[in-house]
């Protein structure tokens, strides 16, 4: 550890505090709003610290008496979970063999295919939403989980493939050949050696994929129109769309919507630790 002068130390800590404040202030404000009463929130001048703390908004969302609010929130939560987790699982199932093939198998055309895959990822959603909408309509998939899962896979497969491919590239070729000599076939190589070594990248890819699917708003807004398939971002937006926007309720929904991804990140944390490669081959 190098020595720092006191002024440097003060500077670093104050900048870190500033960064923390900038990152956390909106979350904190969201939380305060969610436990404030409507009266406190609409009062002028603004009361930063609410006079009374009420969990009423949370109770309302989580099914206090089977209200329509609770129903739409809870089904949206369920829809979001189904869509995000299925899209992530399917994408990873496709991306792992794809990334392995891009990273390990020969062929010039294979490489150009990777660029095509990445190019689709670059395309703005607005450009393809109309044809997609028409296709979904034709297939009778509008307002279903499947439509969103399909579209999200279209976004996630190139992204996760690319992420995993660059990670597989870092695994020495010897670690493919050693298991083959030991009697494994390609799938066994991937299952027993490549994937365990790439676990951190796999965790990161899964996390990013879930987050992207969880937060997606644009397609979800257009392809769904009632609680059968509406996901959380759309449902929350609906709370704001009425004649009177209930800010407390929206905030509470926002807080609840962040819990699943944060929990997932917490559980994947362990697999995200790197340094698994050490000791395998001498660099």
């Amino acid at each position: 550890m190098t020595r720092r002068s006191p002024s440097q130390t003060i500077m670093i800590y104050s900048l870190a505090l500033l960064l923390g404040a900038v990152l956390l202030a909106p979350v904190l404000w969201l939380f305060i709003m969610s436990v404030s009463s409507t009266r406190d929130l609409t009062a002028l001048p603004l009361t930063w610290i609410p006079e009374t703390i009420s969990l009423e908004n949370y109770a309302k969302l989580l099914g206090g008496g089977g209200s329509t609010v609770a129903e739409s929130f809870l089904t949206a939560l369920r829809n979001s979970l189904i869509v995000a987790l299925s899209a992530t699982a399917i994408s990873l199932a496709v991306a792992v063999p794809a990334a392995y093939s891009f990273s390990r198998l020969p062929g010039r055309r294979r490489k150009s295919l990777l660029f095509v895959a990445i190019a689709t990822f670059m395309m703005p959603p607005v450009a393809i939403v109309l044809p997609l909408y028409a296709m979904m309509g034709e297939l009778g998939l509008l307002n279903t989980h499947l439509s969103l899962i399909l579209v999200y896979c279209g976004i996630l497969v190139p992204f996760t493939t690319w992420l995993l491919k660059s990670n597989f590239d870092g695994i020495p070729m010897d670690l493919d050949e050693a298991p083959i000599i030991d009697g494994a076939n390609r799938l066994q190589v991937i299952w027993h050696v490549t994937l365990p070594i790439a676990k951190p990248a796999l965790g990161a890819a899964a996390l990013m994929a879930v987050l992207m699917a969880w937060d997606e708003f644009f397609y979800a807004l257009l392809f769904t129109n009632d609680i059968r398939a509406k996901t959380l971002p759309v449902a929350i937006a609906d709370f704001a769309a009425g004649r009177v926007a209930d800010y407390g309720l929206i905030s509470a929904a926002g807080i609840l919507a962040t819990i699943p991804p944060v929990a997932l990140a917490y559980f994947l944390q362990k697999s995200l630790v790197s340094g698994l490669m050490s000791g395998s081959v001498k660099g």
Partner: peptide, 19 residues
């Protein structure tokens, strides 16, 4: 196939499975 030859090999880099 390599797997069917029943030949073992020691790699220059050792190629041990790190996990």
């Amino acid at each position: 196939l390599a797997a069917a030859r029943n030949i073992a090999m020691v790699f220059q880099s050792y190629a041990l499975y790190p996990h």
